[in-house]
Every structure is written in C-alpha cells, then in structure tokens.
Simulated scan of single mutants.
Amino acid sequence: MSPMATISELRPAAIDVAVGFTLPGRHARGRLVRLGPVLGEILSAHAYPAPIARLLGEALVLAGLLGAMLKDADGQLTLQAQTEAGIVDLLVCDYKGGELRGYVRFDADRLAAAPRPTLADLFGKGYLAITFDQAATGERYQGIVPLEGGSLAEAAQHYFAQSEQIPSFVRLAVDDSGHVAGGLLVQHLPEGEEGRDRLHTRLDHPEWDHVRILAETVRDGELTDAELPLETLLWRLFHEEEEVRVLGAVGLSRGCRCNAEHIRSVLSRFSAEERATMADADGMIAVDCEFCSRAFPVAIGDLAD
C-alpha cells in the first residue's frame, strides 16, 4: 500500500479501485470501492437474472471493502452466505492481492415467483460467514452472523457490531445498468483502541455519531458514478474535518485462480482408485470451475501417482 497522503495528493481514481482513508481527529477509518469492467468480467461467466447479478455486485464490493483492509499482501478474505430455505443456495466471494471472484447458485423457479426478492426471500434463515486468512502467520479468523436486515449492507453492519464490536457504517450500491457497483465502509476506532477490550467500545460515542451522520449522506449515484473520482467523493463527505488521511489506492481485478496445472496438482492428491471413479470411459476427468464457468478436462495418464 502506498504511503499516506492528503486528499489533494491522491491520484485520480474512479473505477476498479479501493481507496482507504482515516479521520484522525474523529478516530475513524474507512474504505471506498468502485467496480466497473471487473464486475462485468465476473458477471459475464454466468447469465444471472438481474436480482442475482445485483446481489453478486453488492457482495463483490463488500469483499473489496473488507479485503483491502488486509495488511498481509498474500492474505485472503472470503465472504460466504450459508442459506436455508432461500432462493439462493450459495453465495461466495473472495479477495486476494487485489483480485476478486464470486459466484451465486440459486433456484431459478423460486426466483421467477419473486421478481423483487427481499433479503429474507433470497437467503431464508441464512448466515454470513467472513473469513480472514493471514498467509504470513497462517492464522485464520472467522466471524458468523445471521443474515438479518433489509440488505447485505445491513447484514455486514451486524457482523461488525456482533463479531468485532466495532461501530460501522456500510453502504453498497449497483447502478441501474448493473455494470457499475460501489460501496463505502466507515468504522470507529476509539481512543486507546490498541490493547483495549473491544467489548467496552461504546456504540453511541459522540465522535462516531458525527462521522456516521456525514457518511450517511453518501448517495448511491455517487458510489456508482464512474466519472466521479473517489477522492472527490471523500472531499464532499468529510471536507469540514480537520484532517483526512488517504492511505492510497489499490487496483482491483478479476482473479479466478483456476488453471490446468493447479487442477492436475489437486487431482494428483487422490488415489489411483479414486481418480478412476472420477474419469469417464475415455479416461478423462472433467473439472468445472463455478467461478469462471470453464471446464478443464484432465487425462488420468497425465496425473502423477
């Protein structure tokens, strides 16, 4: 991540990027994300109906907001919705090194019966699992909260309130075309946060109320305006603050990590007997990637014993 800068020093950044910032005088930090071509690439792998494409767009933005907070450059953030009796059977997105990927599996017949599905329609009695994998230390942290509220953004706020005890504001938006999505995450970091028991963090801290009220003025159209530099939006939201430190911009890209070499390596871990049961009559094992909708045929004879 580039060194901290003032807003005036931040290079213009409008699309497929995450920008971090802090408000030192208010003990707050945040991220802005906007996706365009990257979103289009990910959605193009599947012919998603509009409500599902919008949901995946919001989830990818959320993955970008959370993943860009990782200090470990090789770390990974995984966001997964575990559902029960909902239209969506599975939603999973992840972030690693600025690369995003995502996939939704859903019941098309149930979606057709609910053309404007609510969060409850989509997920039923569902749970949101957010997992942080730190490559440098090998540590893994996971938080799980019910998918409650009227939107994925509200569910994410519940996650931070319950799992992290950090007052947070999340806004996610997808434009009418479905091809541009954006989001804002702002969090309160109370005085003495380092080494402090977060269970005692006040959710009604006056500084946080002030920051939250400013953040709530963000409009969906601002988050999805590909011509509006994110530093300009930051200035509009927080220009009256004593100081806004910008942590730099992280470029975002589509990053499905499937390839023939990796798949052969995974299949080689199975026994010869197990591989034989996977193969067809011609001795080929067909492996499909749900993320990019590509098929990888692998011949048993190409696998090491």
Rank of each mutant, 00 (worst) to 15 (best):
L70W: 00
M4I: 12
P117D: 04
A63M: 07
D107G: 03
A181T: 11
D175G: 04
F296T: 05
G221N: 12
P297H: 08
A304D: 13
D176Q: 13
A68N: 06
Q76V: 14
S44G: 12
L122D: 00
A108F: 08
A18C: 04
R105M: 07
T131E: 14
S177M: 03
A276Y: 01
G248E: 10
H200D: 13
G75V: 04
V61W: 01
Q80D: 11
P24T: 12
G251H: 12
E191V: 08
G124S: 06
Y159M: 12
Q82V: 08
L122W: 01
E240H: 08
G178A: 05
Q82A: 14
F270N: 13
V104Y: 03
G255Q: 11
L91Y: 02
F123H: 02
H210D: 15
T78H: 01
C258E: 11
H188L: 02
T201L: 06
H262E: 13
Q82I: 12
C292Y: 09
V287K: 00
G221L: 05
G102N: 01
L172H: 08
L223H: 01
A63N: 01
V211P: 02
G248I: 00
Y95L: 10
A260D: 11
L199Y: 11
E227N: 06
D305G: 10
M4Y: 03
I300N: 09
L62G: 10
G25T: 11
L119C: 09
L62S: 13
F21C: 11
V180H: 05
R219N: 01
L55S: 00
F291K: 14
G20A: 08
G67T: 09
M284G: 01
F296S: 12
S163W: 02
F291V: 14
P3T: 11
A129P: 05
D197Y: 00
T22S: 15
A14C: 06
A81E: 11
T6M: 15
G150L: 06
A272E: 08
R110D: 10
P117I: 02
A286P: 07
E231A: 14
Y95Q: 07
D204T: 13
S2W: 03
L111A: 06
E191R: 03
A156C: 15
L90E: 14
H27A: 15
D282L: 10
V61G: 01
L223V: 02
E41P: 04
G195N: 04
R140K: 15
R264C: 09
L70D: 14
H210R: 15
L172V: 00
E241P: 07
Q82F: 07
V170T: 09
L10V: 14
F291P: 13
G97W: 04
L128T: 03
P117T: 10
H262K: 15
P229I: 12
D280R: 12
A120L: 09
L65I: 05
H188P: 03
F291R: 11
I213S: 15
R34N: 09
G138K: 06
T277M: 05
G149M: 08
L39E: 09
A156Y: 07
E273F: 09
D288S: 14
P190I: 09
R31E: 13
H27P: 03
T78A: 06
